[in-house]
Design a protein around this nucleic acid. Sequence first.
DNA 1: ATGGTTATATATCGTTTTGATATATAACCA
DNA 2: TGGTTATATATCAAAACGATATATAACCAT
Lengths: 165, 165
Amino acid sequence: MVEMMLLGFLMDGAKTGYEVKKYMEKSTHYFFNTGFSSIYPKYKKLEKEGRVRVSQEIKNGKLNKVYTLTPAGEEAFQEWLAVTPEIGRIRDEALLKVFFFDHLEEKKRTEQLAAYTEALRAHVNALKAIRERLSVHRIEPWKMTTLEFGIRYYEFLNQCFSEMA
Amino acid sequence: MVEMMLLGFLMDGAKTGYEVKKYMEKSTHYFFNTGFSSIYPKYKKLEKEGRVRVSQEIKNGKLNKVYTLTPAGEEAFQEWLAVTPEIGRIRDEALLKVFFFDHLEEKKRTEQLAAYTEALRAHVNALKAIRERLSVHRIEPWKMTTLEFGIRYYEFLNQCFSEMA
DNA sequence: ATGGTTATATATCGTTTTGATATATAACCA
DNA sequence: TGGTTATATATCAAAACGATATATAACCAT
C-alpha cells in the first residue's frame, strides 16, 4: 500500500525521495505516513519492476536522484486506485486501553480520559490551522476533502472519549 | 503494544495461545487483532522476561501450553494501562484513495464510494448483531463501551464517505 | 569570514507486525 | 470408518516502522 502511495505522489511530477517525504509531511501525515526507510528501498524496488525511472539530475542545486513515473507505473497506480478498498481495522491504542479499563482505578481512568481528550482538542486545532493556511492557495478538491475528514474524525474521537468520562 | 494486549488478555485467568486468539476474535478483532505468528513468539519472549509463566497442563482434553500472568507481568500491564495514549494515525486505505481521487474519473469515483459505503453499512449491522447477542450476557462495562464505539465509528465513516459522493 | 544551525538528501539496521502456510491431534457427525 | 471442523503450536518471508548515520548546501549571526 505504501508502494501505491509512493507512485501516487509522482502523479503530479518527478520528485526526489526527500521531496516526497516533505510533501507527505504537509498533506497525508495525519492519516498516512512513511519514513525514508521505506521510501528509498521502495523506489529502488519500483525501478527494478519498471514502474519508476531513476535519473541523476541537478535539482535544488545538487546532483540528486529524481524519481519519474513510467507508463507501467501510472497504470499500476490507476488500477489500484479503481479498486474498492477493504474496511480497515481501527487499530487505536486509546481504544485498546478503554477495553481494559475495568482493570484501572476510576481516578486514573478519569485523568487519562481528560488528558487524552485535551490532546485531541489541540490536534483538531492544529489541523484547522492547516486548513486556514491552505484555503488561501487553491488546493486540489479531493486533497482538501481528506483534510476536512481529518478534522471531523478527531472531533468525533474527542466527542466519543469525552462521553466516556 | 501487541505485547501489552497479550498480557491484558491473561488478566482474567490463564489461557492457551489458541484461547487468547479465540477471545480476541470475538471481542477486539474489529479494532485490534493479531495472528498466531505474533501470539506464540510474543509469549515466549514474555516468559524469558519473567512476565508470563508457561506450564504444560491438561486443558480441553490435551496437554497444552498454558500462559499465566506473573506479578511482574501484571505490573508491566498496569503501568502501560495508566499512561495516557498518543493520538494515533488514521491509516485508512479508503482515505488514501480519496486523497488521489482527482486522478480517477468521476464515474468510477461514484461507483467506488457507493460500494464502500454499502460495505460499511453491512459492517455496522454485523457489529449491531454482536451487540444484541452480548446484551443477554452481562459483559464487563468497558468492553461494551468499545463495542458501542465501534458501531458509532463505522456509522461515522459511512456518513462521511456518503457525503463525499 | 567563520562557526553554528537548519534544510536537503540518501542510506542502512534492527525490530515489530502481518500474512501465509505447515502440521498434528481431538471431537463431532454421517 | 471416513470426512470435516475445532483445537493447538510453530515457522517463514514480507511489509512496515523507528532510530540513526552521514554529508553537503544554505542561511544567519557574531
